[in-house]
Simulated assay, not measured.
Amino acid sequence: MPVVTDLDSVPLTPVYTIVISAAGEATIEGEPVEPLPGQDGRTSALADIRVRAARRGHPIRIIAKEPDGSAWPLIVDHDGAVTPMPGPHPTPPPAFVAPAPVAPVVPVAPQPVPAPAPMPPAPVAPAPIPAPAPAPAPAPVQAPPAPVQTSPDWHTPLPPHHADRFGRIVAAELRGDLVGAALAAREMEGALDREYGALHPHTVGVLGTRAWLALLLQEDWAAIMRLHLRTAERRHNAQAPVDETRRVLRNARAVWWRLAAVDRAEADEIQPELQRVSDLVEGVLPE
Rank of each mutant, 00 (worst) to 15 (best):
181 A>G: 11
182 A>K: 07
182 A>P: 06
183 L>C: 04
184 A>I: 03
185 A>W: 10
185 A>Q: 10
186 R>W: 09
186 R>H: 14
187 E>F: 11
187 E>W: 03
187 E>I: 04
188 M>I: 01
189 E>N: 09
191 A>L: 14
192 L>Q: 12
192 L>N: 10
193 D>W: 04
193 D>R: 00
196 Y>M: 01
196 Y>T: 02
196 Y>H: 06
197 G>H: 03
198 A>H: 13
199 L>T: 04
199 L>R: 06
199 L>C: 04
200 H>Q: 07
200 H>P: 09
201 P>E: 03
201 P>I: 02
201 P>D: 04
204 V>G: 00
204 V>E: 02
205 G>A: 06
206 V>G: 00
206 V>S: 01
206 V>I: 14
206 V>C: 06
209 T>Q: 06
209 T>H: 04
209 T>N: 04
210 R>K: 12
212 W>T: 15
215 L>G: 15
215 L>C: 13
215 L>M: 12
218 Q>I: 13
218 Q>N: 12
219 E>K: 11
219 E>V: 15
220 D>T: 08
224 I>P: 10
227 L>W: 07
227 L>Y: 05
229 L>A: 15
229 L>H: 08
231 T>H: 02
231 T>D: 08
232 A>K: 08
232 A>P: 12
233 E>M: 07
234 R>K: 07
234 R>Y: 08
235 R>T: 00
235 R>Q: 05
240 A>F: 07
241 P>W: 08
242 V>I: 15
